[in-house]
Nucleic acid binder design. Structure first.
Length: 275
DNA sequence: CCCCAGGGCCCGT
DNA sequence: ACGGGCCATGGG
């Protein structure tokens, strides 16, 4: 049961769990406080509390109905993945994962920062970007607009702890603000074209591009391969322990898990990190 | 102290 | 096209 009202959404559905949605690695601006989940996107915040066995999402209900992809039928996606290898346990214990429809700019910036980095540190860096360049609304900071990001120079990103990614962010923001890159274009492109298009951005390689395609542009036929997924790969294909090429892994994993490979990847990423 | 993290860039072959 | 070295940072 999913009920959209004026200023809240009421959900009693096994395919929705704020903890799994927040902590499966797709998003970094969230926190849990006194049993309530807060998740931020752009300039908005959703507050999710459990009331009498029912989740209630407070916030802009039009925005968050779309953001949480509540129109999508995850029971049928779950079912279509059920006959795939190594995923059954994850599918039964992690039903509540959904792929968020995140803002492209925020996703691009966040996943450039994610490269070769730890999740807690990624969260901290993004928080500091918002605290410095975002706006304070009712006790939380918004994600900065592209104009605000443009006003920051390279040394700003270095100073808040981005490390060597300072240049990537600066160059990427320049490309977007110079209109050399249309941030809405990947929506209407096929997955492969959108991927090469995204990789024109400094700091966006194959893995980061896959994350952006999946988390911002609803391209589900991808499979972000990071250090965790490599462990999974060697369980799936123990006969080829010598293959360490991420490109080949990616292709085989997409072929194995099919049109919803990216969603399968999230179930698997979550479960393998829990071990 | 070393190792590692949701990797990508740059430079040689 | 490919492989290897390098890159800041902080937590374990």
């Amino acid at each position: 049961m999913i009920l959209k009202e004026l200023d809240k959404i009421i959900i009693k559905d096994e395919f929705f769990d704020p903890k799994e949605i927040c902590t499966c690695g797709q998003v970094f601006r969230y926190r849990k406080e006194n049993g309530v989940w807060y998740i931020n996107s752009r300039d908005k915040q959703a507050k999710i509390s459990l009331e009498n066995d029912t989740y209630v999402i407070y916030g802009n209900s039009d925005y968050f109905y779309n953001y949480f992809d509540l129109n999508n039928d995850y029971s049928s996606i779950n079912e279509s993945l059920n006959n795939k290898p190594l995923i059954n346990n994850a599918l039964s214990s992690l039903k509540g994962i959904r792929i968020l429809k995140q803002d492209p700019l925020e996703t691009i910036i966040s996943f450039i920062i994610s490269a070769n980095n730890h999740i807690p540190r990624i969260k901290g860096i993004i928080e500091r970007i918002c605290a410095s360049l975002g706006e304070n609304i009712d006790g939380y900071y918004t994600f900065p607009t592209i104009d605000k990001l443009k006003s920051a120079d390279k040394s700003f990103f270095r100073a808040i702890g981005c490390g060597y990614r300072d240049e990537y962010l600066y160059n990427t923001i320049s490309l977007i603000t110079n209109s050399e890159f249309d941030i809405n274009k990947p929506y209407s492109m096929d997955t492969e074209s959108a991927k090469s298009y995204l990789m024109r951005l400094n700091g966006v390689g194959p893995k980061v591009a896959d994350c952006i395609l999946l988390f911002a542009y609803q391209k589900y036929d991808v499979f972000p391969v990071d250090t965790w997924i490599k462990k999974l790969y060697f369980r799936l294909f123990p006969q080829s322990p010598l293959n360490t090429d991420p490109k080949i892994m990616r292709t085989e994993l997409v072929n194995t898990y099919g049109e919803y490979a990216g969603i399968a990847q999230q179930y698997l990423f979550y479960s393998i990190r829990e071990e």
